[in-house]
């Protein structure tokens, strides 16, 4: 046989083998990027009417420690709880102090007299504004998971998400009372807390409000633990809260409106004291995909401070000026 013919056949065979091998590789890559026929389509629920967005972002404060968890504001200062670090800054971002703590920090509350109540999973620690530890209250039990602290006159209310109860403490750390929200006349269930999101706050009239996340409601309780009022609805609509465990966080503004934060589709919204949706502060587009629901707080001017956990920063939102 002609030598050249043999070479030609060998080259053709070689090229065919190379094509099969390389083509196979590319085919694989292409397959890896093919469209998902079962794509989960959010549709229009993450689209928010721009008219509803009445806040704008005006400041960002980068955080220097890992794993920010919680934030609170009082009298010009912001206290930030990290996994094992407590930091206090002013609203310009200047550090007042930082202190390593045993942690893990799961909640935080700044009092008007600038004491810091730190929820460390199953107990409370109290610090002054120099970062000095004043008191450590007795551990509740190992399974306790403190998710929120609220202050009213001479009482400290502590939300325990694992037990779905609110504990009422004296200012010296003595447990006076606890309630699970079940002593209501119109329903059998009390607090339903499917995940560690169980927030509390007190309004200007001294009323205690709790986020009953399992039923997507914010509820008002008397000191004896009886339900006074509630609002909230489970809905994909902007007016309601989606899915379980929402609102994940809330804070009461100076005018007794509520600022809420949802997990899943992270939406920050303002509700009037009556529970009617008033406006939107931040939309899901303002946060990274799959963001942890950010803790939030507000100042005397009703500016909102959002702890963006994914981006490790505090983001300040101010109301847009109306013409």
């Amino acid at each position: 046989m002609n030598k050249n013919l043999i070479y030609l056949i060998l080259i053709v065979c070689g090229l065919a083998i190379a094509y099969i091998m390389v083509g196979g590789l590319f085919k694989n890559e292409l397959k890896k990027t093919t469209k998902n026929p079962y794509e989960y389509d959010l549709g229009d629920i993450n689209k928010i009417d721009p008219e509803m967005i009445k806040y704008k972002e005006t400041k960002r404060i980068g955080l220097s420690f890992a794993e920010p968890k919680v934030v609170d504001y009082s009298s010009g200062y912001l206290a930030i709880g990290f996994e094992n670090q407590l930091q206090m800054i002013d609203t310009s971002g200047r550090e007042i102090f930082n202190k390593a703590v045993s942690g893990p920090i799961t909640s935080l509350k700044l009092s008007k007299d600038n004491l810091i109540y730190l929820g460390c999973k199953n107990h409370i620690e109290k610090y002054n504004t120099n970062g000095d530890l004043i008191e450590t209250w007795q551990e509740i039990d190992p399974s306790t998971y403190i998710t929120s602290i609220a202050l009213k006159d001479d009482y400290v209310f502590v939300a325990n998400a694992s037990g779905a109860v609110v504990l009422q403490y004296s200012l010296t750390g003595e447990i006076l009372h606890s309630f699970d929200g079940k002593n209501r006349t119109d329903s059998k269930h009390g607090f339903i807390i499917p995940s560690p999101y169980f927030d509390l706050d007190v309004d200007s009239g001294g009323e205690l409000w709790a986020a009953n996340t399992g039923v997507q409601a914010i509820e008002n309780y008397n000191l004896d633990g009886s339900l006074r009022a509630f609002w909230g609805a489970s809905s994909y609509d902007l007016k309601g809260f989606i899915g379980c465990c929402n609102p994940a966080h809330f804070s009461i503004l100076e005018n007794d409106s509520f600022v809420t934060c949802e997990k899943g589709l992270v939406r920050i919204k303002i509700y009037l004291p009556s529970g009617e949706l008033e406006s939107v502060v931040a939309t899901p587009d303002d946060f990274s995909a799959n963001s942890i629901p950010p803790d939030l707080t507000s100042d005397e001017m009703n500016n909102i401070y959002i702890l963006d956990i994914s981006r490790k920063m505090i983001r300040k939102f101010e109301r847009k000026e109306t013409s």
């Binding site: 079962y38 989960y40 389509d41 959010l42 549709g43 229009d44 629920i45 339903i192 499917p194 995940s195 399992g214 997507q216 489970s234 809905s235 994909y236 609509d237 989606i242 899915g243 379980c244 465990c245 899943g264």
Partner: peptide, 28 residues
């Protein structure tokens, strides 16, 4: 599980009526 009425795994996003109608179900 939270045993929720509005289950994100069961209902299509945006449904208004939380019932078992086929048009509301996410699962194909």
């Amino acid at each position: 599980c939270g045993y929720c009425d509005l289950c994100g795994g069961y209902f299509k996003p945006g449904v208004m009526d939380l019932n078992t109608g086929g048009e509301n179900q996410l699962c194909p």
